[in-house]
Amino acid sequence: MIQLNHTTLLYGTVIGVNDFHIELPAGAYALVGPNGAGKSTLIGLLTGALRPTLGNVRLYGVDPSRDSTVLQRIGLCPASELLVHGVTAFQWVKLHLSLSGWPIRRAAARADEVLDLVGMTEASHRPIHTFSLGMRQRCKLAQALANDPDLLILDEPFNGLDPIGRHDMSLLLKQWVSAGKSLLLASHVLHEVERITNSFMLIYGGRLLACGTSAELRHLLAGLPQEITIQTTTPSELAERLVVMPWLRSLNRGNSDQSLRISVERPLELYQNLAVWAQSGEVDIHQLSGSDGDISALFHLLVSKHRGEILMTGVSA
């Protein structure tokens, strides 16, 4: 579905996307990264609105900046705010259907249907500039869905939505994916995208940090430095044993007297040693807690690695 072959895009001397090399079959993917990571630029490349400085982009086998007919298969909901005056949601969605080739009458009927789908029936004949942020998001989504695309590209679709809107959006996108349609969901909020897809691309500074399912990424996490909190009745004894270990990065007292917060470079070795010490009765451990269940931990670690704050061995992103 998507192929990026060593794609680089420069805005003058600023790097938008840096040597992106990936091939994605049809499916649902989350593009996760902080603000300014290059998500929107990557979407610009995929939609042919931007042309790469180096490398190339293929969407369904063709270059979208040269053969625009492939764009009929895409629905895009950009992150930018919708600032149109004196136009109703219905008129705006109808315009975009016309631009996709729909005859005016059929476009009008279709615009009604799609606005109904996103829960905008009652407001469809109100001017867009009177809408709340959430209503504008729905309007943008309606426009993206209107032509029944094969690939839906959503850039920060949850922004501005209230909890009910978020719930409805999640359900809709889940259904979209389960109907066999493809989805590329760009967001900087991980927990929202985790509800919809299990395939992630982590991006930072225009570079792809890691790519895979959450299980694959967690496996990656096992080899990465981690912060772990240990609840113990023998904190001093445990601390004595830990401080001599070469893989220990830092050791602090936790929130209570009976807890230690540690940072380790090779967590697997810590777990092995803890098991031995606990079995021998030298230390007493009540609870271990880390952040390895959260993709965001991995993300932050990968970003730290990218910035050169962490030196790692045996980990490939």
Partner: peptide, 16 residues
């Protein structure tokens, strides 16, 4: 899905 049509899109833009 309809094919791209300059006539339809032109009408759409004009009326909009």
């Amino acid at each position: 899905r309809p094919s791209p049509s300059l006539w339809n899109s032109l009408q759409g833009v004009f009326s909009y």
